[in-house]
């Protein structure tokens, strides 16, 4: 009887120990239950996955939810970077600004702000902030200077001093930069007034000047023919027809002068279009010579 009781007692003790064990396991599991797909930790790892997949809008939503409960400089930086990459520059700039003081990424955030302004093409503010102490960073001052020089290739402000501009780039790229600099400084454009004056002197000459040889010759023939028809009709006393053709000749003459000026402008737009594309492709290829941060791609 005693032995039996002891057996049952041992079983009960064993059961109680097991009970404590299972409750511990279950409570750990219960912790896991809370740690579900929407917990801050899960949101962060899912957000990081989306970021690497370039699904930046979704990633930014996950980061925003994470930051509601936790504060993390890297996550806020990645949130700003997500906005930057999807072209929401203002939100990117504001989030970068929130990392300016007492954080581990103060320099990176300052560079981030300049990147936001650069890609927004807000070059006025870019240049203004570059001179303000609150926004500058020793660590990336060269990168920001370089970005500032690059910005001159994308707007119509006068180009800065060539030697300082060239020295901002590595020797390897300097030849290309020099080429772009002189292309920007002395573009191969045509003057619309010259084109118009040339066409006023000889119909079609302005068009030939802008490279439209076919249009120029056609203008010359058309205007010449209409003048001839007009003169011929006047000579044969067909005054109505004479005036009619004279009117047409005047239209062709005037239209050609106007068209020559327009043609020069289109030619110039073409020069600018090709230059802009070439410059954009070059800098995109080199990622605007900006440093890459490993922690962003983790």
């Amino acid at each position: 009887m005693i032995i039996k009781r002891t057996k049952s007692h041992i079983a009960e003790i064993f059961c109680n120990v097991l009970c404590v064990f299972v409750i511990t396991v279950v409570s750990v599991n219960a912790q896991k239950l809370n740690d579900d797909f929407f917990s801050p930790k899960s949101r962060l790892s899912f957000g990081n996955y989306l970021f690497l997949e370039k699904d930046y809008l979704r990633a930014s939503n996950e980061y925003k939810e994470f930051l509601k409960t936790d504060n993390n400089d890297t996550v806020r930086f990645k949130l700003s970077e997500s906005f930057l990459r999807i072209g929401r520059y203002e939100e990117a700039a504001n989030n970068f600004k929130s990392l300016f003081f007492s954080t581990s990424l103060t320099d990176e955030a300052r560079l981030g702000l300049f990147k936001s302004l650069f890609f927004e093409k807000n070059f006025v503010r870019f240049r203004q902030y570059r001179l303000e102490e609150n926004y500058t960073t020793e660590k990336f001052s060269h990168d920001i200077d370089r970005l500032n020089y690059i910005s001159y290739f994308f707007d119509s402000e006068p180009l800065p001093d060539s030697s300082r501009l060239f020295s901002a780039f590595a020797d390897l790229n300097r030849a290309d930069i020099k080429k772009f600099y002189y292309m920007k400084k002395n573009p191969d454009t045509k003057n619309p007034v010259t084109a118009a004056l040339l066409s006023a002197a000889i119909p079609g000459l302005g068009k030939i000047y802008t490279g439209e040889i076919g249009d120029g010759i056609t203008s010359l023939i058309t205007t010449g023919l209409l003048v001839f028809l007009s003169a011929n009709n006047f000579r044969h006393d067909h005054n109505f027809r004479g005036w009619l053709f004279a009117g047409f000749a005047a239209l062709a003459y005037g239209g050609n002068i106007y068209g020559s000026a327009a043609s020069a402008q289109i030619y110039n737009a073409g020069v600018k279009f090709n230059f802009d594309n070439e410059v954009k492709l070059f800098f995109e290829k080199h990622n605007y010579f900006l440093p890459e941060f490993d922690f962003v791609n983790r």
Partner: peptide, 30 residues
């Protein structure tokens, strides 16, 4: 003894259910 058996049964049940729970989370998410 019966009491003990129920205790064991309950423990095993809790254990099984809790270990199956992540599976349920997936279906809830789906």
């Amino acid at each position: 003894m019966k009491k003990l058996f129920y205790k064991y049964f309950l423990l095993i049940e809790i254990f099984v259910v809790s270990s199956l729970f992540p599976q349920d989370r997936l279906s809830i998410q789906f």
